[in-house]
Write a protein that binds this DNA or RNA. Structure first.
Lengths: 148, 148
DNA sequence: CTACATAGTCAAGCAGCTTGACCAAGCTAA
DNA sequence: TTAGCTTGGTCAAGCTGCTTGACTATGTAG
């Protein structure tokens, strides 16, 4: 693989990622929710039984202070609520509210729309599956990172 | 395509993009340059004959003030220099210095390394080419956007 | 020559993150 | 039990990279 090809792949990957993020966010907003992309990553983690602030921080790859601020923002907007943690009085369990679930579904729908469009560009859902499988194989574990 | 599949693709795409960005930057730093990911996008544009601040701003999808600050930073670090623009006394042409070219090559090498690794994960360079072609087809034109 | 558009800078402000200090609650060992 | 350390979370201050707004200098169209 030549360097220039590596750069072409890099540019295409980042362009696709940025475009996808933007359009999912636009779709969420169009469905009546206000948000920023980071919400989606938080929701992904919260949608499986809730999480503590520290869990979220790890998942997002930020400090717990930053995660705490994000949670505060989500509480203010009515997407999540803090509950006492069963079994650890220090911790608080952050869970999605009904509105939070609605926002999550909106994000899913918006994502599905974009990917539907990609399927048309690529010539079929099979091609999308190939893409997803390839990306899954190269995607690392660990915290989510901003693409730049 | 079901919603959950769309989310899986989204997550994998963003994880791959974030990982790639991070590792290219790490590679650049390991080669003795200091930088942040945005530099790479600027260099991509500058490497084709230089650009004005306004060109850069458009390419990066930010205000010209932000682009101007970035250029100032790059000048301070010795990666670019400002020259009078031939044919427009208002404008200044920002061009890469020798050190700037070195940093650009370092980024190319770092990118090639990561993608070499991806080729092994995917089982061959042919698979990488498939990935690149697919991404190229779905990647939009227009300014580069942060992935989140 | 006038009027407007464009390239660039200066200044102020803001969002989202960081580091550092701290408290309350849990854990471990004596 | 208690002493000492770890862990979950918050408060406060500060920084970075962006924004909007105001402005100057140069170009361009009538």
């Amino acid at each position: 693989m030549q360097n220039s090809e590596a750069l072409a792949l890099t540019a295409a990957l980042l362009a696709a990622a940025g475009d996808l993020t933007q359009r999912i966010n636009d779709g969420v907003v169009a469905r009546g929710f206000e948000g920023r992309p980071a919400y989606g990553f938080a929701f992904t983690r919260l949608s499986r039984g809730g999480a503590t602030v520290t869990d979220l921080a790890t998942h997002l790859g930020v400090t717990k202070q930053a995660a705490s601020q994000l949670v505060e923002e989500l509480v203010r907007k009515g997407y999540v609520e803090r509950r006492p943690h069963p079994g650890d009085a220090r911790a608080r369990l952050v869970v999605l509210t009904e509105r939070g679930w609605g926002c999550t579904r909106a994000a899913e729908e918006a994502a599905a729309e974009v990917i539907q469009e990609w399927a048309e560009l690529l010539g079929g859902e099979g091609e999308v599956r190939v893409l997803r499988d390839q990306l899954t194989r190269i995607a690392p574990y660990g915290p989510i990172r901003p693409a730049w």
